[in-house]
Every structure is written in structure tokens, then in C-alpha cells.
Design a protein around this nucleic acid. Sequence first.
DNA 1: TAGTGGTCTAGACCACGTA
DNA 2: ACGTGGTCTAGACCACTAA
Lengths: 237, 237
Amino acid sequence: MRKYEFISNEIRKRIQEKYYSADQPIPDELSLAKEFSCSRMTMKRALDILVSEGMLYRKRGHGTFIVKSSIQNIPVSVTDKENLGLTKLLVGKQIESNIIQFDVEFPTDQVARQLSIEKRVPVYHIIRLRKVEDEPYVIEETYMPSNLISELTEDVLHDSIYRHITETLNLKIAGSHRKIRADKSSDLDQRYLECADDDPVLEVEQIAFLNTGEPFEYSFARHRYDKFEFSSVHIRK
Amino acid sequence: MRKYEFISNEIRKRIQEKYYSADQPIPDELSLAKEFSCSRMTMKRALDILVSEGMLYRKRGHGTFIVKSSIQNIPVSVTDKENLGLTKLLVGKQIESNIIQFDVEFPTDQVARQLSIEKRVPVYHIIRLRKVEDEPYVIEETYMPSNLISELTEDVLHDSIYRHITETLNLKIAGSHRKIRADKSSDLDQRYLECADDDPVLEVEQIAFLNTGEPFEYSFARHRYDKFEFSSVHIRK
DNA sequence: TAGTGGTCTAGACCACGTA
DNA sequence: ACGTGGTCTAGACCACTAA
């Protein structure tokens, strides 16, 4: 366990358990560094994590304070904690994946460009309906280059593509770029998400990268507008 | 100018100008530190910024590499760079604000809770239509505690609330929590955004904080679905 | 084994806010 | 003047990767 992570977790626990008064600054960095037997840089790094989570804020020349609203708000962010698929996001819930389409094809210009591949490299083209607790939740249309993501089978699609990538293929996911927009529901949306003609959907377009810098996924996730919202925390530097 | 910011900007420029080959790692941290006459920690911090922007990625034991797709994709993110209002986001464009409503009232339970204030503290309740280049762009409904944000006038609302807060009141904005969702357009949306009955809207709910930790804004921004999307970059730690 | 990035130290000085 | 956080240094050792 890294020292700064251990300390960060400890301080987070203390805040949640109201060990520190929310009306006063928490102890200064040097005192905390002494308490945890670390350098001030390491202490600062531990606190940085909590600042980036929106749990603490600093005032130069004054001290480090608890963001009061952070104590009750538990689920700070979908965005910043995970870009793992549904499977990890909703642990404990019963998740089911219906395969609507599963093809291999040559990419369109747009798909080839987003995945940074040549047009002659085949891509998987997958459309899945994900259900949570038997309720339709999201339709995911996914493109993945076949040379990068191998051994994709229907079994994998029913389980979790992310698990296949990280555990079976042993690849490492580095991050993703996302765009979020509203759209009118298409016939496909209405059929599978069981939504009304005039129900909108929330679409998340995503390009995900391996730690090699290679894009391995270009996807469109279309969510029922009444069952999903996207959360993010923004801290100014 | 902070040293790590200067270095970070310099490396970013080099990447954009293809000074470094995208097929090879950029020079190692120690060499770069020597070139910029700084410590390795400072060099690492400069590179951290570019990693968090999705421009570089690292492989331990191997080197630091350029994310190829980052070179052409210029506007990486609305999310991570700014939570300043429209005024700063769309510099150079002609922006107009029409005031639809401007009241002071006692907050509802929900508004009081989100702003962490007592129900007896009056709040400004503002609804504005923001136009960009004469086209309707977004309807913003905003609640601000009157004890925190003072001297709010129609002149300010026509200009920029953020400028008033940072420049006139000299307060510092620390960050915000946001939720993004799709919704059906309301009568108000249709009237002012000039959208059709069945056009959806993209709603961004935001609580913004000062560096004192106090929430100063609780707002709902409703965007035309065909004119706005929300971008974010996610890097796994 | 050599070279890379990841963590950590024990200091230093600076910038800012309060008294 | 003092105490706070912000930046920066010049090292050290560790973890991982490739040759």
C-alpha cells in the first residue's frame, strides 16, 4: 500500500466519522506529517486526493477545511472514480446483457479515425442491451479493433467486456474521452429501452484508451432519460 | 509564472508542433529536468499536467509517450478547464443575456439544502436566456444566497455574474459539482430556446462553491440538444 | 543489468492572510 | 511578525521492463 493512499483513506474516514470539527481547519500539514511519520510532501499529496474529491479545500495562509456538503453526499462522482463498465459500477445488482448485434466489419471513416486504425483492419461491431434488475437500462453500441481485442465471444458479451480486457487479455486501461449529449429516441431505443415516442435519451460517446495509448473502444451508450444522470466534480486549480 | 506551468506549456507546444516524434518516447524525466534546469519532481509535476489532459501517458520502466489522437483533437474538454460561465467559455463571440425573471425570495427546502443555508435567508432567483451570436443557446435558472452575493443588479445580469463575483466582490471560486441529464423540453424551453415540442434538452444541474467552502450558486442550465454537448477527460490513477 | 517512471524524504524559500 | 499552504530542490530507494 502506498503511504499517501493509506493516509488519504485514514483522513477520509476521520472526516466521515466527524473526528474533525467541520467548523475549524483540520490540523496543519506539518503536524499531520509528524503524526503520520511522513514528509510534508507526502502529507500534501494525501490531502490533494481529498481536495480533488471535493471533500477538502485549502486557503493559503489560513488552513485546510472540510467541505460541509461532502459529508452527506456519498456518491460524489461516476466520472472521476470509474470508467469501468456497468459490471463494476453497479456491484451487487443483477445485470443482464442481451446481444442485439455482434458482427465483424470494416470500419467506416469515422470509426477508423476515432480508433486510429487503417480502414482495412476489421472491427467488432456490437450492440447490447444492458438490463439492471430486469429493467432496461442502456443500449451500448461498441466498436473495437479486432487486432487489439481478441477472442471476443458471445460468452464474453454476456458477461463483461472490461473483465475480458483486463483479466483475460491482461491489458491495462488508461482512460477515456467522453462527450455527453441529449437526443431524441430512435426506433431502436424505443423498442429496447421500452420508452415512449417522445422520451429523450442521454447519449455518452466514449473513446477509451489502453496504457499503450491505443484507442480500443469507440462507443455510444444511450440511456433512458429517467434512469441515468452523469455526475462530475470540478475543482479549479 | 510557476516553473512547472511554464515547462508544461513548453512541452505542450512541442507536442503540438511535432517537435517530438510520436513513435518514440519523449526524453526521460531526468534529461528533461536537466534541460529545464529543474528537479525531477518539478519535471514530473509538469508532465503530470499533460497526462491529466490526456496528451501523454507513461509506462513504468519504459518511458513517456504521446497520445496520438490528442494532437488533432484540440478542444479536449469543457469540463476540466473551466467552470466559468458562458462569458469566458465563448470569448470573442457576441453574447447576450435576456432576463426572464429576477426575484428575491425565501428558498424552498431543496434550494436551502443545496446552498447549505437557513430557510430565512433570502435567495436571488434568476432566470436568464443566454444567446450566442443572436441564437438562443441556454436557459439558466439560478439561485444565489443574497447574504453571500450582494449588489446583484440587472446590469450585472446582462453582463456576467461570474465577473461580478470574481472582480467586483473579489470572491474566489473553488469548484463545482454537476449532474448532467436529458429531459423533455418544457413550455418555457420551447418558447425561449425556440425548439420544437418533441425536442429534448440537456440539463446541467450545478452547485458551485467559493474557496470558503460555501455554496454560492445552485443552478439548472437547459441547453438545446442540437447545440451543446458536454465533454470530459477521464484518466485512471 | 541498465534504464525508466513511482514514491518518499528533509529540508528551503515564497505568497498570502491574520493579527 | 507569524502561521498557513504553494513551490522547489537534490537527493534516495523501489518497481517494472527490456535486452
